[in-house]
């Protein structure tokens, strides 16, 4: 139906390290908890803007949060 993404992420690990709950991080980046859950499970690829918001909120570089495999 939709093309599966090869992008993976470590949002959950960095969020828990930062001591934030899903509700707290979701509120800070302006999305619902369901959307944050979908991102963490790899079921939704956030927009570039949302990815930057997560990066800034967790004070973590984008490259550490989101990964794309080499060919």
């Amino acid at each position: 139906m939709t093309k599966p993404t090869r992008v993976t992420n470590s949002v959950r690990e960095f969020r828990t390290s930062a001591g934030l709950t899903q509700i707290e991080l979701a509120a800070r980046i302006g999305v619902t908890r369901q959307t944050l859950i979908a991102i963490e499970k790899g079921k939704y690829s956030p927009s570039l803007e949302m990815a930057f918001q997560i990066s800034r909120t967790l004070d973590t570089p984008l490259e550490d949060l989101f990964h794309y495999p080499d060919e």
């Binding site: 509700i23 302006g30 979908a38 949302m50």
Partner: peptide
């Protein structure tokens, strides 16, 4: 805590 709004997704 159920939310009653829609977001970008």
């Amino acid at each position: 805590d159920t939310e009653h709004r829609a977001d970008l997704r």
